[in-house]
Design a protein around this nucleic acid. Structure first.
Lengths: 234, 234
DNA sequence: CCAAAAGTGTTACCGTTACACCCATGG
DNA sequence: CCATGGGTGTAACGGTAACACTTTTGG
């Protein structure tokens, strides 16, 4: 494994295939991006998405899960395929096609660990991200568009908040991601009217007037409703 | 090219990468699927989506366009990436990852030509499709879901109709794809209210009462409106 | 004491829904 | 001459948008 022996031979040329994971988080009213600092060439020292070559015995999904675990210590998070990038010169090592993934994490629930071939793992505010390795800046913009589009008609915002959250927090998350102000009253009315939030305010011992009520998302009920034709929308 | 010489050697194993095109059409009030009959192994004689191996010097998009042209004689049609399939045993030849594409065609505007490695090209009613090669049945179901989802909030229905069409035709297309009845009056009101249909009824010489008005989709105006925040929805 | 934050209420408006209705013609 | 298919009108309803308002507390 350490000494490459060039022992895989094919009739026709084949591209290498990698997986890259765009990982979003939300903390301190900011949309965050999880990046790893490369410890190997190419782009040594640059920040990039966790990812790597797909193995012979794993699907792209499995590879993404493995990379999230190996490189950042993440597991059990929202993950879905984003898009496949196949521009000819996107990787200096030669022809590399990348299947990009899209992940959402509750940052508070994990402590990051820099893993294999990685110097560091760190959350960045979306605004401060620049000069990424490969074509990762382009992948990022596709991911951001997907996030903006999807949050309006699928309950994925909850994947970015702790299990217990307040309505002002949720409201703020939507305003931040959609980059526009949303009427407070109308937002809470619509959210609550769907009946998908479980009220935990009775658990709050010393609830002052300025302390917001705590809710959690009722995933079970959402799945039920979805089955019977309901569909989430903000 | 004809005699394979096993001359491409790599340090690590690489999957082969293909492109497959799911092509929808609409004719005689039926949703159609374009399939090619395989002239080579594996699955010789089975029906499958047009597609094939990605070349060293082309992107996945380019490969899809090439395959559409080579195998079915199609060009200038709506095309977008659908999903990448990477299950381990989806191809008997070994590890093959496929980037699936999603295409919409106006069947009346093309005459099909069976091309390279293809015995026949033919339109099938969606219902009669069964026993496809590879995992193409699974790819198909993803494509159908995409079509159903996307037609409601993007003006892709027009890609399936001739440039000139009537409102009853459009109405029928929506009912067929969404598999539910839609109120005639409301449908036409909503469609017309968006101001994206150009009326060509003045061109109709002998327009009887039972002959429906002819319209075309104003793509230029749609792009303009989209820029300024408008978004299509039925 | 007042600005700020959480929560609630009110109203006008607009788009959708579910119809009914007209009109012309082709069989 | 009436069933069929294209085209139009309307009234009730419900959700949304844009507000105003109340309460409590932290500085």
């Amino acid at each position: 494994m350490a000494t490459a022996q060039k022992k895989y031979t094919y009739d026709y040329p084949r591209p290498a295939v990698t997986v890259d994971c765009v990982i979003f988080g939300f903390e301190k009213n900011q949309l965050k991006l999880l990046l790893t600092k490369r410890a190997i060439e190419p782009y040594l020292g640059k920040w990039a998405f966790p990812g790597g070559f797909i193995r012979e015995d794993e699907t792209a999904d499995e590879c993404a899960l493995r990379k999230l675990s190996e490189e950042a210590g993440l597991s059990n998070i929202f993950l879905e395929q984003l898009y496949t990038f196949s521009e000819l010169n996107r990787d200096p090592r030669g022809r590399v096609i990348s299947v990009a993934y899209f992940a959402l994490v509750k940052p508070t629930e994990y402590t990051l660990e820099a893993g294999l071939d990685i110097d560091a793992v760190q959350w960045f505010g979306l605004e401060e991200v620049a000069d990424l390795a490969f074509d990762h800046q382009q992948i990022l913009s596709v991911a951001v568009e997907r996030l903006k589009g999807k949050i309006r008609y699928q309950p994925i915002g909850f994947e970015l908040l702790p299990a217990q959250f307040t309505l002002p927090e949720l409201h703020n998350l939507y305003e931040t991601i959609l980059q526009r102000s949303i009427d407070r009253g109308n937002f809470r009315k619509k959210m609550l009217s769907m009946g998908l939030l479980i009220d935990h305010s009775d658990m709050q011992k010393d609830r002052h007037a300025r302390a917001a009520k705590i809710y959690s998302f009722d995933k079970v009920k959402y799945e039920e409703l979805k089955e019977s034709g309901f569909y989430f929308e903000i």
